[in-house]
Design a protein around this nucleic acid. Sequence first.
DNA 1: CAGTATCCCGACGGATACTG
DNA 2: CAGTATCCGTCGGGATACTG
Lengths: 133, 133
Amino acid sequence: MEHAAGPVPAAGFGPCAAIPAEHMDFIRQILDRIGDKWSMLIIALLEDGPMRYTDLQRNVPGISQRMLSLTLRQLTQDGLVTRTAYAEVPPRVEYSLTHLSQGLLDIVKQLIGWASDHHEEIRQNRTRAEPTH
Amino acid sequence: MEHAAGPVPAAGFGPCAAIPAEHMDFIRQILDRIGDKWSMLIIALLEDGPMRYTDLQRNVPGISQRMLSLTLRQLTQDGLVTRTAYAEVPPRVEYSLTHLSQGLLDIVKQLIGWASDHHEEIRQNRTRAEPTH
DNA sequence: CAGTATCCCGACGGATACTG
DNA sequence: CAGTATCCGTCGGGATACTG
């Protein structure tokens, strides 16, 4: 991100130097899509390589068939996941990442890393925040 | 639920090398929290420095007072945002990032950058995915 | 195996009105 | 200015049953 260096550039201080208002729109779009309950998890899981429907279902604990299907369809439509169906006797379908989602994968992994590092701290903060009332 | 009876291959490549099942839990916790509709946006906005309640309200287009209050309270409780109230005649309250959210900010910025770079591609993918009926 | 279809509940979150 | 309180609709998403 170019932020050039600069403490609040331009005139006075604008209402929002960090995010141009024009960007707000699709930032929300993307967040709504991958910020949902399962997308990032699935993308992270696909890092290892292609996975089948049931593989995903086993490895994303708690996901329902409905949500798995829906999420995969969304991701496929967005070009973040590739669906490959093999015409075999027991049907086989594999899902894998695309070039587009490779960059996203990197970020998702960072987010997971951050969560791993700080979830405990956050939990502590949360419980200790009670007494205020 | 543990189906301990399962193969659970342990050797070779397990069902999930990317995310150990134990981590799934708090990954979901974090995603549920910051993956909501407004948290990341607010964190990104606070990069520039402290902002007041109304500043945030202006710069997060479409957010309601209710959601702004709620989100800020959540973030404050989690230790991701600091709330500072000045006892002045017109009340003034400022919100800013904490050391904890600094690392998260970096990731959020990357995500925003990624969204900026690829939202168009994603939109195209989405529209061109229709004909499949 | 890899899904789809249907039902249904709870929460997320917007609109509005009120307060310290 | 900086919130809280209440009402209420939408819809994300789980449970269950069925299909190619």
